[in-house]
């Protein structure tokens, strides 16, 4: 019988506290990997999601470079070099909304009821979701850098700073995945999660240094853009890729990542747990 081969579940105190914690940790990791595998498989099987996460970012790179590239002056660096990091950040943020949409879908369709009736780690539903979206973001970021390099993007800031750009961008995306998770667990409806995502990501990315230099914005908008965490992340990434002073921006970006995660991760977990 299959039942007999099952590992003892944690919480039976016979195997001791330490062993219990180790088993529990193994379950959290193992179950998260299973959930991530499932979510990635769904990306592969669903053409519109695949299109959304790969073709449209590439299209964005091409459109911005060729349509706006001639009209926007970005000083000493070329518009291609300027825009690519901006689009990397924007794409990762749009990708992060999938975390909320996927979570809302599972809640809406009753998948979570089954998961919660099983002895799996409860946190694995959220963690697996975020892990899958992170893996997808890594893939998309490298794809876009590849496309960018094909049309003239170059790293001018040296190897190591450039090497860390994808990590910064993806890390920033993870923080926003938690924001989306809060939304998904609260609204529990795919359509709502989708539209709420657009409502905050669009203004946030456009009122930042992602597409145009902040100095070109009107006086009332400039302070908003300056304090926008996306401006910090984009400026940090840009300095890493193209050279220039970067310590302040990198530290600020990391502070934003930590701050958003510290607030939104517990909040998302709490929202998810009160589902019933």
């Amino acid at each position: 019988m299959a039942t007999n081969e099952r590992t003892t579940s944690p919480g039976t105190f016979s195997d001791g506290l330490v062993a219990g914690i180790v088993t529990e940790a193994r379950y959290v990791v193992g179950d998260s990997v299973v959930m991530a595998w499932r979510n990635l498989l769904k990306y592969r099987r669903s053409p519109e999601l695949l299109l959304f996460s790969t073709v449209s970012p590439v299209m964005f790179v091409l459109l911005f470079v060729y349509v706006f590239g001639g009209a926007i002056s970005t000083g000493p660096i070329s518009y291609t070099d300027f825009i690519l990091v901006g689009i990397l950040v924007q794409t990762t943020l749009f990708g992060s909304t999938q975390t909320g949409i996927g979570l809302a879908e599972d809640l809406q369709k009753g998948m979570v009821d089954r998961y919660r009736s099983m002895p799996m780690a409860r946190s694995a539903v959220l963690a697996g979701r975020i892990l899958a979206d992170t893996i997808r973001n890594v893939f998309v970021v490298y794809l876009m850098i590849g496309v960018g390099m094909a049309i003239g993007f170059r790293f001018h800031g040296g190897f190591w700073p450039g090497f860390w750009v994808p990590f910064l961008v993806v890390g920033f995306g993870i923080a926003f995945s938690w924001v989306a998770a809060v939304i998904g667990a609260s609204v529990r409806n795919v359509e709502t999660a989708n539209s709420v995502g657009f409502v905050y990501i669009f203004p946030l990315t456009f009122m930042s240094s992602a597409f145009v230099p902040v100095e070109t914005m009107p006086d009332w908008l400039r302070p908003i853009a300056e304090h926008n965490p996306i401006t910090r992340a984009v400026d940090a990434g840009r300095a890493m890729a193209q050279g220039g002073p970067l310590v302040d921006d990198v530290l600020l970006t990391m502070a934003w990542i930590a701050g958003i995660t510290l607030v939104c991760a517990p909040w998302a977990i709490w929202q998810y747990r009160r589902v019933s």
Binding site: R6, G30, R45, S46, G110, M111, D113, R114
Partner: peptide, 27 residues
């Protein structure tokens, strides 16, 4: 538990659905 709404992943095959549940039961 078989709840009121069928809790299966439509994009996964029947086999994948069952294997996933088995893995989540730590089989």
């Amino acid at each position: 538990l078989a709840g009121q709404s069928t809790a299966i992943d439509e994009l996964l095959t029947g086999r994948e659905n069952l294997e996933m549940v088995g893995r989540l039961y730590h089989l």
